[in-house]
């Protein structure tokens, strides 16, 4: 074990949504993970996996009505879940910043980019006037926006998707946060622009020493970026490992299934794809057994008897009663 204290320590986080009709939904259920300073952690999952809800819960951005959040989210020594609203607002933006998937809806369409960036600087760093503008221009150029002084005067719709995402990252960086949470930051972007943004995030993490939580459905992004990866399915973590271990030896049938179903650019042509049967909506409720059981090729009878525990193995956590063997490549 390293001696570094975790920067973020999520313990047994659960989020339930009460609905007017129908049963309550456990969007996130007993999720625990840590993020150390300078570390890049990936939360991977498909729609309905709870990865985005997890990040919103950490940021305190879930709506209050109809939502119950349980567990602890320790940042330094503060539990973000019990922090008063104004303290949380201070931490958000100054210590923890977030970048969203859709840069257009995260920016105010009727306010110039410059004003939006300087606003953050004024609020959290108490910069004023020319100093704030100069700092804003520097930030934009730092995230690779050419001609920043002119760009500051422009409105979000005048920027391309990639530039908007850069502007958002600039805003997130304005206060040199110690933790950056990026929720599918490149999903709306083209692949060459995605490469630019990923490269930018890598650089920023290296230069500033900030920690990064990357939320994505794209295993390829995780493979090149994250130190530690947590795979989520239907609200729970099913497998966690360092990225090399995870990709070299996926143990959970879901992780293995995902890897086997994604076409690889470098695979020989005609290599068959092994899709996971069913869809992410064919889930079992965790109380009744493993949520992945209905789609799992390795299913045992015991899998549907009750929720499988998250076991800690050397260098790995795994929630499976019948994992892939360590040599097995993919489930057929």
């Amino acid at each position: 074990m390293t001696t570094t204290e975790p920067l973020l320590d999520v313990r047994d986080l659960s989020v339930t949504f009460a609905r007017k009709s129908g049963p309550t939904v456990h969007a996130v259920d007993g999720v625990s993970f840590t993020v150390r300073p300078g570390e890049t952690v990936g939360l991977v999952g498909e729609s309905g996996s709870g990865k985005s809800v997890t990040s919103l819960a950490v940021m305190g951005l879930l709506p209050r009505r109809g939502v119950r959040v349980g567990g602890q989210v320790l940042f330094d020594t503060d539990d973000l879940l019990t922090l008063p609203r104004d303290r949380m607002r201070d931490i958000r933006g100054r210590d923890i910043a977030m970048v969203f998937q859709d840069p257009m809806s995260s920016l105010n369409p009727v306010v110039p980019i410059g004003v939006q960036v300087t606003e953050v600087l004024e609020r959290h760093q108490r910069l004023r006037g020319d100093k704030a503008s100069a700092a804003a221009a520097e930030l934009l150029s730092r995230v690779g926006i050419p001609d920043p002084t002119r760009r500051l005067k422009e409105y979000p719709h005048q920027l391309s998707g990639g530039m908007r995402q850069r502007a958002l990252i600039a805003m997130a960086l304005a206060c040199q946060p110690r933790l950056l949470i990026a929720d599918e930051p490149t999903t709306a972007l083209d692949v060459t622009i995605q490469a630019q943004i990923i490269e930018l995030l890598k650089e920023l993490v290296q230069d500033t020493g900030a920690a990064l939580v990357m939320i994505t459905h794209d295993l390829g992004i995780v493979a090149g970026l994250c130190d530690t990866v947590h795979v989520m399915y239907s609200g729970r973590i099913v497998e966690s490992a360092g990225r090399r271990e995870l990709f070299a030896e996926p143990r959970h049938p879901y992780t293995g299934g995902l890897l086997a179903s994604v076409p690889r650019l470098d695979a020989p042509r005609g290599a068959p794809l092994h899709p996971i049967p069913g869809s992410p909506t064919d889930v079992l409720r965790w109380e009744r057994g493993c949520a992945f059981a209905p789609r799992c090729p390795n299913r045992l009878d015991a899998c549907t008897d009750g929720p499988p525990p998250l076991e800690t193995l050397p260098g790995r956590r795994l929630r499976c009663l019948n994992p892939l063997s360590e040599t097995e490549e993919v489930p057929a």
Binding site: V191, T192, Q194, A195, Q196, I198, E199, D218, L219, G220, I221, V222, A223, G224, R243, R244, F247, A248, L259, V262, R264, L265, D266
Partner: peptide
């Protein structure tokens, strides 16, 4: 070169051309 490949061994050794 921009397409990510879900394999750290490949990702770590690739040269990228950024546009």
């Amino acid at each position: 070169s921009a397409v990510p490949i879900p394999d750290p061994a490949v990702e770590d050794t690739r040269q990228r051309i950024l546009l």
